[in-house]
Design a protein around this nucleic acid. Structure first.
Length: 204
DNA sequence: GAGTAGATCCTCT
DNA sequence: GAGGATCTACTCA
């Protein structure tokens, strides 16, 4: 399994990077505990022209500053006061593109994920949805800005690929406030995978 | 299966 | 002081 390199992250087409992230493996080795999962759902956030993005209109604050960094770092923030959302920053310096990782299929360290999430049994809800997957892998705000070349938290390629026929796209979830941009088909997911979040009718 | 309410707190206005 | 890139549990059907 090979770690993804900066060349992967720093390309300028955030939609393409988002699509290619499907099938990649997110690995967390925090606290000496190995947990990992295969990415089955993502959303692209297309910089300053995208009303759904935190960087819309060039907004730049202490919170989203890391979106303006070079691709290959992560952006983590707290949503609704409860959930940590994990993003991958792409493109080059000063271009605030990012991909939100929305769901994983658990691979390794499932007992640890159960412990972290307080769930009783391993099922498809373990890493379903951005809030859940961060919890299961032990990702917190303190990780924001961390390089994905790090050894504790990184993305890797094990050469697994989903066939293009099995990948669907849809508008992004939970961004109704973004007006017309809420309709952009920037969400990509693996069809018929139980780990994918959102209502069933959005996942065909 | 569909719809709704409540939790909960950081961030920006 | 308002609101959010969410989740769960609950209701009704």
């Amino acid at each position: 399994m090979k770690k993804l390199t900066n060349r992967f992250y720093q390309r300028n087409d955030v939609l393409q990077v988002a699509r290619e992230l499907l099938g990649m493996v997110l690995v967390s080795e925090k606290e000496g505990k190995l947990t990992s999962g295969r990415i089955v759902e993502v959303e692209a956030y297309n910089g300053i022209t995208d009303k759904a993005s935190h960087a819309w209109g060039g907004r730049r604050t202490a919170r989203n500053e890391v979106m303006y960094a070079e691709g290959g770092v992560c952006y983590v923030y707290l949503c609704y006061g409860i959930h940590h959302l994990f993003n991958v920053v792409t493109n080059t310096k000063e271009i605030p593109h990012a991909v939100l990782i929305r769901a994983l299929e658990p691979l390794k360290g499932i007992p640890i994920m159960l412990q972290r999430t307080g769930k009783q049994k391993a099922d498809h809800t373990l890493t379903r949805g951005p809030g859940n997957l961060s919890k299961a892998l032990g990702i917190y705000i303190a990780d924001s800005g961390r390089s994905l070349a790090d050894t504790e938290l990184y993305l890797a390629d094990d050469e697994f690929r989903y066939h293009t026929d099995t990948i669907g796209s849809s508008p992004r979830i939970g961004v109704d406030y973004a007006g017309e941009d809420a309709w952009l088909p920037y969400r990509f997911f693996v069809k018929n995978n139980p780990c994918v979040s959102g209502a069933a009718r959005y996942n065909r």
